[in-house]
Computed example of a mutant assay.
Amino acid sequence: MAATSKILAVGIMVFSFIIGLITFYMMSDLSKKEKKEQVEEIISQLINFVIFIWIGKIILNISIFIEDPLAILAYPSDSRAFYFSVLLSGFVLFYKYKKKQMDIVTFIHSFIHVFLVASFLYEFIQFVWNDNAFSFGNMVVIVILMVIFLFMQGYVSNYMAFFTILVLWSIGMFLLSLIQPYITVFGYMIDVWFVGVFLLINVIIIYLNNRKRDV
Protein backbone atom coordinates (compact mmCIF):
# COMPACT_ATOMS: atom_id res chain seq x y z
CA MET A 1 0.00 0.00 0.00
CA ALA A 2 2.81 2.40 0.95
CA ALA A 3 4.74 1.48 -2.20
CA THR A 4 1.66 2.10 -4.35
CA SER A 5 1.09 5.47 -2.68
CA LYS A 6 4.72 6.44 -3.29
CA ILE A 7 4.56 5.44 -6.97
CA LEU A 8 1.30 7.36 -7.38
CA ALA A 9 2.83 10.49 -5.83
CA VAL A 10 5.80 10.30 -8.18
CA GLY A 11 3.45 9.75 -11.11
CA ILE A 12 1.45 12.88 -10.22
CA MET A 13 4.65 14.90 -9.99
CA VAL A 14 5.96 13.66 -13.35
CA PHE A 15 2.58 14.27 -14.98
CA SER A 16 2.49 17.82 -13.56
CA PHE A 17 5.90 18.69 -15.00
CA ILE A 18 5.02 17.17 -18.37
CA ILE A 19 1.98 19.45 -18.56
CA GLY A 20 4.15 22.36 -17.44
CA LEU A 21 6.62 21.65 -20.26
CA ILE A 22 3.82 21.30 -22.82
CA THR A 23 2.21 24.60 -21.84
CA PHE A 24 5.60 26.33 -21.98
CA TYR A 25 6.25 24.93 -25.45
CA MET A 26 2.81 26.02 -26.68
CA MET A 27 2.81 29.51 -25.12
CA SER A 28 6.45 30.62 -25.35
CA ASP A 29 7.44 33.30 -27.88
CA LEU A 30 10.83 31.66 -28.42
CA SER A 31 11.70 30.05 -31.74
CA LYS A 32 11.02 26.36 -32.18
CA LYS A 33 14.71 25.58 -31.85
CA GLU A 34 15.06 27.67 -28.67
CA LYS A 35 11.98 26.10 -27.10
CA LYS A 36 13.37 22.63 -27.81
CA GLU A 37 16.68 23.61 -26.22
CA GLN A 38 14.97 24.99 -23.13
CA VAL A 39 12.74 21.93 -22.72
CA GLU A 40 15.82 19.68 -22.94
CA GLU A 41 17.72 21.84 -20.44
CA ILE A 42 14.82 21.88 -17.96
CA ILE A 43 14.43 18.10 -18.21
CA SER A 44 18.18 17.71 -17.68
CA GLN A 45 18.11 19.88 -14.55
CA LEU A 46 15.06 18.06 -13.18
CA ILE A 47 16.83 14.72 -13.66
CA ASN A 48 19.88 16.16 -11.88
CA PHE A 49 17.61 17.30 -9.05
CA VAL A 50 16.22 13.78 -8.59
CA ILE A 51 19.73 12.29 -8.70
CA PHE A 52 20.93 14.78 -6.09
CA ILE A 53 18.00 13.83 -3.86
CA TRP A 54 19.11 10.18 -4.03
CA ILE A 55 22.73 11.16 -3.36
CA GLY A 56 21.58 13.24 -0.41
CA LYS A 57 19.46 10.37 0.87
CA ILE A 58 22.50 8.07 0.77
CA ILE A 59 24.87 10.55 2.41
CA LEU A 60 22.40 11.51 5.13
CA ASN A 61 21.66 7.85 5.86
CA ILE A 62 25.15 6.50 5.27
CA SER A 63 25.02 4.04 8.19
CA ILE A 64 21.90 2.38 6.75
CA PHE A 65 23.45 2.35 3.28
CA ILE A 66 26.59 0.60 4.54
CA GLU A 67 24.61 -2.07 6.38
CA ASP A 68 21.92 -2.59 3.75
CA PRO A 69 22.25 -0.62 0.47
CA LEU A 70 18.93 -1.91 -0.83
CA ALA A 71 17.15 -0.42 2.16
CA ILE A 72 17.86 3.02 0.71
CA LEU A 73 15.49 2.19 -2.16
CA ALA A 74 12.66 1.80 0.33
CA TYR A 75 13.76 4.61 2.64
CA PRO A 76 11.67 7.71 1.90
CA SER A 77 13.39 10.95 0.96
CA ASP A 78 12.94 13.65 3.58
CA SER A 79 13.31 17.41 3.69
CA ARG A 80 17.05 17.16 4.34
CA ALA A 81 17.58 15.34 1.04
CA PHE A 82 15.44 18.01 -0.62
CA TYR A 83 17.60 20.82 0.83
CA PHE A 84 20.73 18.94 -0.27
CA SER A 85 19.39 18.70 -3.82
CA VAL A 86 18.42 22.38 -3.94
CA LEU A 87 21.94 23.34 -2.83
CA LEU A 88 23.70 21.12 -5.39
CA SER A 89 21.35 22.19 -8.18
CA GLY A 90 22.13 25.82 -7.39
CA PHE A 91 25.86 25.12 -7.60
CA VAL A 92 25.45 23.32 -10.94
CA LEU A 93 23.46 26.21 -12.46
CA PHE A 94 25.98 28.76 -11.12
CA TYR A 95 28.86 26.73 -12.56
CA LYS A 96 27.23 26.42 -15.99
CA TYR A 97 26.46 30.15 -15.93
CA LYS A 98 30.05 31.08 -15.07
CA LYS A 99 31.41 28.74 -17.75
CA LYS A 100 28.92 30.22 -20.25
CA GLN A 101 27.51 26.75 -20.90
CA MET A 102 23.90 27.96 -20.82
CA ASP A 103 21.78 31.04 -21.40
CA ILE A 104 20.83 31.46 -17.76
CA VAL A 105 18.40 34.35 -18.35
CA THR A 106 16.33 32.41 -20.90
CA PHE A 107 16.51 29.27 -18.77
CA ILE A 108 15.23 30.86 -15.56
CA HIS A 109 12.36 32.54 -17.40
CA SER A 110 11.42 29.23 -19.03
CA PHE A 111 11.78 27.31 -15.79
CA ILE A 112 9.57 29.62 -13.75
CA HIS A 113 6.77 29.09 -16.29
CA VAL A 114 7.11 25.30 -16.05
CA PHE A 115 7.47 25.38 -12.26
CA LEU A 116 4.36 27.48 -11.65
CA VAL A 117 2.15 25.41 -13.96
CA ALA A 118 3.49 22.11 -12.58
CA SER A 119 3.10 23.32 -8.98
CA PHE A 120 -0.48 24.43 -9.50
CA LEU A 121 -1.47 21.19 -11.23
CA TYR A 122 0.24 19.06 -8.57
CA GLU A 123 -1.50 20.89 -5.72
CA PHE A 124 -4.83 20.86 -7.57
CA ILE A 125 -4.65 17.07 -7.96
CA GLN A 126 -3.69 16.69 -4.30
CA PHE A 127 -6.60 18.91 -3.27
CA VAL A 128 -9.27 17.33 -5.48
CA TRP A 129 -8.18 13.71 -5.75
CA ASN A 130 -6.36 13.11 -2.46
CA ASP A 131 -8.54 15.54 -0.46
CA ASN A 132 -5.49 17.36 0.91
CA ALA A 133 -6.90 20.53 2.46
CA PHE A 134 -3.43 22.07 2.91
CA SER A 135 -2.91 22.07 -0.87
CA PHE A 136 -5.51 24.83 -1.17
CA GLY A 137 -3.18 27.37 0.45
CA ASN A 138 -0.39 26.40 -1.94
CA MET A 139 -2.78 26.80 -4.88
CA VAL A 140 -3.72 30.31 -3.78
CA VAL A 141 -0.07 31.33 -3.51
CA ILE A 142 0.75 29.85 -6.93
CA VAL A 143 -2.21 31.51 -8.66
CA ILE A 144 -1.14 34.89 -7.24
CA LEU A 145 2.41 34.27 -8.49
CA MET A 146 1.10 33.31 -11.93
CA VAL A 147 -0.86 36.57 -12.21
CA ILE A 148 2.14 38.63 -11.06
CA PHE A 149 4.45 36.76 -13.43
CA LEU A 150 2.15 37.51 -16.38
CA PHE A 151 1.88 41.20 -15.46
CA MET A 152 5.67 41.53 -15.20
CA GLN A 153 6.19 40.42 -18.80
CA GLY A 154 7.63 43.30 -20.81
CA TYR A 155 8.11 45.51 -17.73
CA VAL A 156 11.05 43.86 -15.99
CA SER A 157 13.87 41.66 -17.22
CA ASN A 158 13.49 37.89 -17.19
CA TYR A 159 16.29 37.78 -14.62
CA MET A 160 14.52 40.12 -12.21
CA ALA A 161 11.16 38.47 -12.83
CA PHE A 162 12.61 35.12 -11.78
CA PHE A 163 14.10 36.31 -8.51
CA THR A 164 11.07 38.47 -7.73
CA ILE A 165 8.85 35.39 -8.07
CA LEU A 166 11.20 33.44 -5.78
CA VAL A 167 11.02 36.21 -3.16
CA LEU A 168 7.22 36.37 -3.36
CA TRP A 169 7.01 32.56 -3.22
CA SER A 170 9.13 32.58 -0.05
CA ILE A 171 6.89 35.22 1.52
CA GLY A 172 3.81 33.22 0.54
CA MET A 173 5.23 30.05 2.09
CA PHE A 174 6.11 31.92 5.27
CA LEU A 175 2.56 33.28 5.56
CA LEU A 176 1.16 29.77 5.02
CA SER A 177 3.39 28.49 7.82
CA LEU A 178 1.57 30.86 10.18
CA ILE A 179 -1.84 29.32 9.48
CA GLN A 180 -0.92 25.70 8.69
CA PRO A 181 0.87 23.08 10.80
CA TYR A 182 3.31 22.45 7.95
CA ILE A 183 4.17 23.60 4.42
CA THR A 184 5.20 21.47 1.47
CA VAL A 185 6.78 21.67 -1.98
CA PHE A 186 5.75 18.80 -4.25
CA GLY A 187 5.00 16.70 -1.20
CA TYR A 188 8.26 17.49 0.64
CA MET A 189 7.75 19.09 4.03
CA ILE A 190 9.96 22.14 4.39
CA ASP A 191 10.98 24.08 7.49
CA VAL A 192 10.41 27.79 8.02
CA TRP A 193 14.16 28.35 8.44
CA PHE A 194 14.73 27.07 4.90
CA VAL A 195 12.13 29.50 3.54
CA GLY A 196 13.83 32.31 5.48
CA VAL A 197 17.29 31.46 4.12
CA PHE A 198 15.87 31.10 0.61
CA LEU A 199 14.18 34.52 0.92
CA LEU A 200 17.34 36.19 2.23
CA ILE A 201 19.51 34.80 -0.58
CA ASN A 202 17.13 36.00 -3.28
CA VAL A 203 16.73 39.46 -1.72
CA ILE A 204 20.53 39.78 -1.64
CA ILE A 205 20.76 38.74 -5.31
CA ILE A 206 18.16 41.35 -6.31
CA TYR A 207 19.95 44.02 -4.24
CA LEU A 208 23.35 43.24 -5.77
CA ASN A 209 21.88 43.18 -9.28
CA ASN A 210 20.25 46.61 -8.78
CA ARG A 211 23.44 47.99 -7.26
CA LYS A 212 25.46 46.73 -10.23
CA ARG A 213 23.09 48.47 -12.66
CA ASP A 214 23.36 51.75 -10.75
CA VAL A 215 27.16 51.76 -10.79
Rank of each mutant, 00 (worst) to 15 (best):
F194V: 00
Y155V: 14
V203W: 07
F151E: 13
F134A: 03
M189R: 09
F124C: 09
V39G: 04
S77N: 11
M27H: 14
F94P: 06
I72D: 07
D214Q: 15
D68M: 05
D131L: 12
A161Y: 06
M173H: 00
L121T: 00
V147E: 10
V215H: 12
F120A: 06
Y95K: 14
V39H: 03
F94M: 15
T4H: 12
I190E: 00
Y75A: 07
M173C: 05
S5N: 11
L145E: 06
F24P: 02
V167I: 14
A81P: 00
T164Y: 08
V195I: 13
A9Q: 07
G11F: 12
Y188I: 01
F49T: 05
G196E: 08
I18E: 02
E67P: 02
M189I: 03
Q101F: 11
P76T: 08
K212C: 10
N138D: 11
I64C: 06
R213E: 13
I19H: 00
L73M: 12
V147P: 06
V10M: 11
L166A: 12
I47D: 00
Y25L: 00
N138I: 07
S28F: 08
I43V: 12
S44F: 14
V114F: 03
L8M: 15
K57D: 05
V197Q: 06
V14T: 01
I19G: 02
M152K: 04
W193F: 13
M173R: 01
F162H: 09
G20Q: 01
Y155S: 15
Y97L: 12
V117F: 07
L175W: 08
